[in-house]
Amino acid sequence: MPQIRPATPADLPAILDIYNHAVLHTTATYDHTPVSLESRQVWFAERQAGGFPVLVGVGDGGEVLGWASYGPFRPRLGYSRTVEHSVYLAPAAQGQGTGSQLLEALIAQATADGYHSMIGGVDGENDGSIRFHEGFGFRECGRLPQVGHKFGRWLDVVFLVRRLQEMDAPGHGEE
């Protein structure tokens, strides 16, 4: 069973490799061009500065099998209790339970951090990811047809949401 732990700067090359594999070979991200290590370093620093987790699933040999994070859904104050998450796995780690462990850890962290809802955006053709999210209590809340494109075709985005905990809405102007 992989160990789930907070990512460190030393994990960024593996996080980068996993993400760039998805960029080049999948519609899990609509990025078309691989990203640089420098851009991942900036992303990681921004996550840390914002108090948002970056988690890794690590195998017995210390190899990073996958990573997960969440951040703001949208920048306006009215969305401050909602986060959007990402989970990415190395191809060899898919279907081995690492994704489930990472998502469970993200849900627990977001709940402990006082968030109300978590959102995932998934390619509309990725039935496996949609079912995966549904298994964790996410439900489809919107499908945006042909809003993305990759590999020479139009793509639908499906938004899935899970309420993490019941809470009163903050007062006007409060986070």
Score class of each variant (00 low, 15 high):
3 Q>M: 12
6 P>M: 03
6 P>S: 12
7 A>V: 11
8 T>Q: 11
9 P>W: 02
10 A>H: 11
12 L>H: 05
15 I>F: 08
18 I>E: 10
20 N>K: 03
22 A>S: 13
25 H>W: 06
26 T>C: 11
29 T>F: 09
29 T>D: 09
30 Y>C: 10
32 H>S: 08
32 H>Y: 04
32 H>I: 08
33 T>A: 08
36 S>D: 04
38 E>W: 01
38 E>Q: 13
39 S>F: 01
42 V>R: 13
43 W>N: 01
44 F>L: 06
46 E>D: 14
48 Q>T: 11
52 F>W: 14
53 P>D: 10
54 V>E: 13
55 L>E: 10
57 G>D: 01
57 G>R: 02
59 G>V: 02
62 G>R: 09
62 G>I: 09
62 G>T: 06
63 E>T: 13
63 E>V: 07
65 L>E: 15
68 A>G: 14
72 P>K: 13
73 F>L: 13
75 P>W: 07
75 P>E: 05
76 R>M: 12
80 S>N: 13
80 S>K: 04
83 V>R: 00
87 V>H: 10
88 Y>D: 06
93 A>D: 00
94 Q>T: 14
96 Q>W: 05
100 S>W: 01
100 S>L: 02
102 L>S: 06
111 T>M: 05
113 D>T: 02
114 G>Q: 12
115 Y>N: 03
117 S>H: 14
118 M>K: 00
119 I>Q: 00
120 G>I: 06
121 G>C: 15
121 G>R: 08
124 G>L: 07
128 G>Q: 06
128 G>F: 00
135 G>E: 01
139 R>S: 12
140 E>N: 07
146 Q>R: 15
149 H>C: 12
150 K>N: 10
151 F>V: 03
156 D>A: 04
159 F>K: 00
161 V>R: 05
161 V>M: 13
166 E>G: 11
167 M>K: 04
168 D>E: 15
174 E>A: 15
174 E>Q: 15
174 E>L: 11
